[in-house]
Design a protein around this nucleic acid. Structure first.
Lengths: 149, 149
DNA sequence: TGAAACCGTACCATAAGAGTGCTATATATG
DNA sequence: CATATATAGCACTCTTATGGTACGGTTTCA
């Protein structure tokens, strides 16, 4: 439906919270879940996934928890989506091979008249997602200049 | 999974085909389905939906079919997604009320730290989708300058 | 009259998403 | 050492959306 999944949403919330902690401070999954009223078990899964790719660092045991392992400025929406939802695919036939290149896998529509344009649109969408960094998300608001909504 | 649905894909294909026909010419659902190897019944449904919102015009009876009812330049990806998949929602809590404005419906996360930024990102995504018109899709390629994929 | 084509709607099957549970392991604390 | 806390890993269910199909009806051309 062209929407981020809840997992990605939860990841954004959790990581933005972690980003705001003092350097080295920990927050447990339960703590974050309580704070934002999200299902604890699910948030645990998300944090585990984020830890497995190195975006956050985990400390086990009592008084353990999670902390940021990377600079929020270096994590984009595209990165998170890639980890939690799989590669961005504007259309089914557009598969991203590297981080930048796309490959056409139109098996059904041999004469597909929109393949090339979709690839271009896909690139633009990817660029857009890559331009939104967690750093921006963490900050309250960039500039009231163009604030319309 | 942050992807367009197949329905939207089929709509793009069908409408791009219709856009290339001579002014006033008709193409039947079956004809288009055969041409691009997509399921006939499904394409019928899609075209019916497109007709119901006035993007294409239907002519009933034998020798009937569909033709474009609007200028392809005036139909954007955002429009098609809106018709076939419902409103674009980058996150669940971001609901678009008008064509431009968004409304926050965060029921779960009262303290959501990413609501505002997501609204901004949603706007940007919407703008992006609105910037991709069917007219561009129909054209083969804009300029070989930046063609990389 | 019959075939072709759209119309409307309802239906089903599969896959993806959302969420839960359980067991194991690591660590701080008493 | 025992216990509580917390992550790790896995597997499972439930719900929803998507993809696809079917049927009866209406319109039009031949």
């Amino acid at each position: 439906m062209l929407a981020l999944t809840k997992k990605t949403g939860y990841a954004l919330v959790a990581m933005s919270h972690l980003s705001r902690l003092d350097r080295g401070s920990l927050a447990s999954a339960r703590e974050i879940a309580d704070l934002f009223d999200v299902p604890t078990s699910l948030l645990m899964n998300v944090l585990k996934q984020l830890a497995s790719v190195g975006y956050v660092e985990s400390v086990r045991g009592a008084r353990g928890g999670y902390r940021m392992a990377v600079d929020p400025e270096n994590v984009s929406l595209a990165d998170l989506v890639g980890v939690l939802e799989g590669p961005v695919r504007l259309a089914e036939c557009v598969t991203e091979v590297a981080g930048d290149d796309t490959e056409c896998t139109c098996q059904v529509m041999a004469n597909c008249p929109v393949a090339d344009p979709l690839h271009r649109a896909q690139r633009k969408l990817k660029d857009f997602l890559a331009s939104v960094t967690l750093g921006e998300i963490v900050k309250p608001a960039p500039a009231p200049t163009e604030n319309k909504g």
